[in-house]
């Protein structure tokens, strides 16, 4: 990668950051949704922690990991929707016609998603700590948990960008969110997998998001489980979705 490529990536990400963080209509929903989800789960479902079979050390920490993963995916999807908006407004053409090596644009889009996610994660962490969440994992384990969320965010951005390159319209927004939000909601959201019953338990067993949540929760608790599986799933998905996004960009180029 040349310094010029890096400049392009930073330029694209910087633009998205300026748009998001200086526009209340964009930044408030972005941060409000995970915060509402967090307070709603912690406030309404914390009684689950009294169940003798609930063996996690802290319900706030238990929900923090879920909301962190959910916000990572949402930030990725929001970045993809911004790409679709650029096609609708014609701004994408400006970028396509100005950039000699267009594949670099995708790097900038991913970087934009990462910046949003890092900011969201910081806000969530501050709120969770203020709400009394304790951290039992080591620094490396906590970094590993945030790393998982970041990879999940990258996978989400690549998926959403791939769809946006193909559809080039924001009308795909709802359809774009569904494949990400559904697995997130059918994972062990408010109770550990062993407390889930019937079909929900079955679905959680097969849901690829389950190992992700369990690994994140294990890392935060300092008792890692399924870490390799989780990194394998999110890394593998990232590779596949990178191919999906690149072929989408190629399709735009071959228009």
């Amino acid at each position: 990668m040349t310094s010029s490529d890096l400049s392009i990536m930073i330029g694209v990400a910087r633009r998205q950051a300026i748009r998001t963080f200086t526009t209340p209509q964009l930044v408030i929903p972005l941060v409000l949704f995970p915060l509402l989800l967090f307070t709603a789960f912690v406030g309404s479902a914390s009684a689950i922690a009294k169940n003798p079979n609930f063996d996690y050390y802290d319900y706030t920490a238990f929900e923090f990991v879920y909301v962190l993963m959910q916000s990572a995916a949402s930030a990725g999807v929001a970045t993809g929707i911004a790409v679709a908006q650029d096609f609708e407004s014609g701004f994408a053409r400006r970028m396509l016609v100005a950039t000699p090596r267009r594949s670099v644009l995708l790097g900038g889009i991913v970087l934009a998603g990462i910046i949003q996610q890092l900011w969201l994660a910081a806000v969530l962490l501050v709120v969770a700590l203020a709400a009394g969440m304790s951290i039992h994992g080591s620094a490396i384990e906590v970094i590993g948990m945030f790393g998982l969320a970041l990879l999940f965010n990258i996978a989400g951005t690549l998926y959403a960008s791939g769809v946006a390159f193909r559809a080039q319209t924001t009308q795909v927004g709802p359809a774009l969110q569904l494949p990400i939000l559904l697995p997130l909601f059918f994972a062990p959201v408010y109770a550990p997998r062993k407390l889930l019953t019937h079909w929900l338990h079955e679905v959680a067993n097969w849901n690829p998001v389950t190992p992700l949540l369990e690994a994140g929760r294990g890392l935060l608790a300092g008792a890692p489980v399924s870490v390799a599986i989780a990194f394998g799933i999110v890394g593998g998905a990232g590779v596949l979705l990178a191919v999906f996004a690149f072929t989408g960009l190629r399709r735009v180029e071959r228009a």
Binding site: S7, I10, V12, R15, R19, S89, G90, F91, A98
Partner: peptide, 25 residues
Amino acid sequence: ALQEAALDPLLNAHEHMRLQCALQG
């Protein structure tokens, strides 16, 4: 400069310039 001036309504002229300079290397 294409038919519809494709500008980002949320950026100012300086920010557009910086982005364009970056894109053009």
